[in-house]
Each structure stands twice: as structure tokens, then as C-alpha cells.
């Protein structure tokens, strides 16, 4: 009986909440708000907030063309793998008070799943055989290498801080519990540099301006996505929207953990509101006021400035502050 219950529960978690359905819906909402707010910042009216959902449904109904040069299996498999890995990540991110799964190394699992979704985009783009995609995947990989170093350092700083005197913990539950007891990391002075660094990593991870060198519509026509059409493109677009929720949600869990109303319905609403605020703060605003960076500048920015901020936090935390 318990086994059946566990199975039903894990199916519900992975498909409905907080997995696929919730992530997709909230992600599309974030994408819509992002488009609306940026339009207002640029003195345009902008599309309705439902627009990304309509775009997605429209793409799902269109025919999917596999180019002659492409490898069919990889070309069509990549968007699905991308979507699945993103849906799985959300299972590990606490929605304020609620966590679907928690092990002892959630942070590393999340790190790897994010990498897998990036690899799916790269391999899919590469398999299309287009030279634009070739350039795009190379840029995507450099972007990945750029933010990976600060990202790892931030995760280590959080893990060390949350481990307290005992050591380190990579468990989301332990990180949330520690913050509930000792105050959120966003308001702990030694963690503030890491929080700022994380806010800068978010747009790079999602592929937002000024860090959208990989897609760069005006130069290389969306790079890896250039040959994609129909449902496959729709899944990648949905994946980008989901990534917005995942990254802002991860920030919430790592730096605003412990905030909880105690009621799951309110928690979900509050969680989405925090994610919206973060999206507007670190993606929309930055997007509206900056132009795209060059690849080598992006790399230098992340390995010096952002990694430096993360290192400051790491060293402070290591010294017990």
C-alpha cells in the first residue's frame, strides 16, 4: 500500500507539482512578465502576459522539420532531454516550506542537472549541421565555463556556511533549516558578496542579455536553435522559461531559505512573487539597460569580478565569519 502511495506521490511530484506542470506554468508566467516589463521600460506597450504560453502552443502545433544534414535521433531527442532535466531540478528546490525530495547532496545534483540541460542544447544544436549552430554551441560552452567557476564557489560557500561548525552540507533541507534558525543568508554580511555573484550568474545561466552571446539573434540567428522548428523549438523555448523559474527559485532557496508562512498555498504564491521580483531585478532590468558583451569580455567578467565576489564570501565563510 505504502509503495503504491509512494509511486503515486512521486508521479504527482514529478509531473504536476513542483515538477513539470508547475515549473512550466510559472516559468511561462515569469517569461511573460519579463517581456511586459521590458516593453514598459522601453516605452512600448508590449505583449500580454499570456503571450509566451500562446507562442508555446502555436509552436507545438506547427510541423517540425528535420534538416537534411541533421542526425534525426539526436536532433529530436535533445529538446526532450533538456525539458526533463529541467523538470527534475525543480524537485530538489524547496518551494519555501515545501520540498519534494531531499537527499544529502542536492546541490551537486542540481549542478549536474543544469549542466545536462546545457549539454542537451549544445548537442542538439551541434547535430543540426548548421555553421551558425556550430558557432553558437562554441559560445554556449564558453558561457558555461565562465559561470561554472563562480557558481561552484557560491555553492561551496553556502554549503560551508550552512554546515556550521560541523562542516559542510550539500542538503537543501539542512540549508533551509540552518537559515530558519540563524536568519537568511541574504542578510548575513559574509554571504552578501556570494548573493550578488549569484544574481549575476542567473542571467548568464538563462541566456539573457548581456550574456546571450550563444543565441545572439542579431549576429548568429539564435545559434544552436537556428534549425529548430515546431514542437522541438517549442520545448526549448519552454525550457528557457522554466530555467528562469529554476534559477530564481534556487536563489530563493539558497539565500532566502527559511522564509515560510506554514501554509502550502500561501507558500507557493509567495515563492512565485519572490521569483517575479528577482526576475525583474536581475534579468529584466539588466536586459533593458545593457547591450550584449563580447565572448572574451564575458569570460573575463565572470572569472575575475564574479568569481572574485564569490571567493570573498568563500574565504570569509572559511574563516568562520
Amino acid at each position: 500500500m505504502t509503495i503504491i502511495f509512494t509511486i503515486i506521490k512521486s508521479i504527482f511530484y514529478s509531473l504536476v507539482f513542483p515538477g513539470l506542470l508547475f515549473t512550466a506554468a510559472a516559468g511561462l508566467l515569469l517569461a511573460g512578465i519579463d517581456r511586459k516589463v521590458i516593453a514598459r521600460m522601453q516605452k512600448r506597450i508590449g505583449p500580454p502576459i499570456r503571450q509566451p504560453l500562446f507562442d508555446f502552443l502555436k509552436l507545438m502545433g506547427k510541423e517540425t522539420i528535420v534538416p537534411r544534414r541533421a542526425n534525426r535521433l539526436v536532433f529530436l531527442g535533445a529538446p526532450v532531454v533538456n525539458l526533463i532535466s529541467l523538470a527534475l531540478i525543480m524537485l530538489f528546490i524547496p518551494v519555501l516550506g515545501f520540498t519534494a525530495f531531499s537527499g544529502s547532496a542536492d546541490l551537486i545534483v542540481i549542478l549536474y542537472l543544469i549542466t545536462i540541460s546545457g549539454v542537451a542544447l549544445i548537442v542538439g544544436g551541434s547535430s543540426s549541421g548548421s555553421p551558425y549552430a556550430g558557432i553558437g554551441i562554441s559560445r554556449e560552452m564558453v558561457t558555461m565555463m565562465s559561470y561554472e567557476l563562480p557558481f561552484v564557489m557560491i555553492l561551496l560557500a553556502v554549503a560551508k556556511k550552512a554546515g556550521g561548525a560541523a562542516g559542510m552540507t550539500f542538503s537543501m533541507d539542512a540549508i533551509t533549516a540552518f537559515q530558519r534558525a540563524n536568519g537568511s543568508f541574504l542578510f548575513t554580511w559574509s554571504m552578501i558578496p556570494a548573493a550578488i555573484a549569484f544574481l549575476l550568474v542567473i542571467p548568464a545561466e538563462v541566456g539573457m542579455q548581456p550574456f546571450d552571446v550563444a543565441e545572439a539573434e542579431t549576429e548568429i540567428c539564435e545559434g544552436p536553435l537556428i534549425e529548430y522548428s515546431g514542437a522541438a523549438l517549442g520545448l526549448f523555448k519552454l525550457g528557457t522559461a522554466m530555467k528562469m523559474l529554476i534559477m530564481t527559485g534556487l536563489f530563493t532557496a539558497l539565500f532566502l531559505g527559511g522564509v515560510s508562512t506554514g501554509m502550502i498555498g500561501l507558500d507557493i504564491i509567495l515563492f512565485v512573487i519572490i521569483c517575479i521580483v528577482l526576475t525583474v531585478l536581475c534579468m529584466t532590468t539588466v536586459h533593458a539597460v545593457t547591450a550584449r558583451l563580447k565572448i572574451e569580455h564575458l569570460f573575463k567578467f565572470f572569472w575575475t569580478f564574479v568569481a572574485g565576489l564569490a571567493l570573498v564570501s568563500l574565504v570569509l565563510v572559511w574563516c568562520g565569519l
Binding site: 514529478s14 513539470l20 507545438m60 510541423e63 522539420i65
Partner: peptide, 28 residues
Amino acid sequence: VLFGIIFCAVAIVILKGFADRGPILESN
């Protein structure tokens, strides 16, 4: 198992829900 569940869900949605409207086209 988790991967499989989501994979099946996505596959069913794509194949059943949208196949009639958007087939996968391929030609050599």
C-alpha cells in the same frame, strides 16, 4: 524511474496531442 515518467508524459503529449497538427517532416 523519474526520468522515465517525465519522458513518457512528454512523449504522450507530443505524439497524441499534437501529432495530427504538426508532424515531424524529414526528407533526403
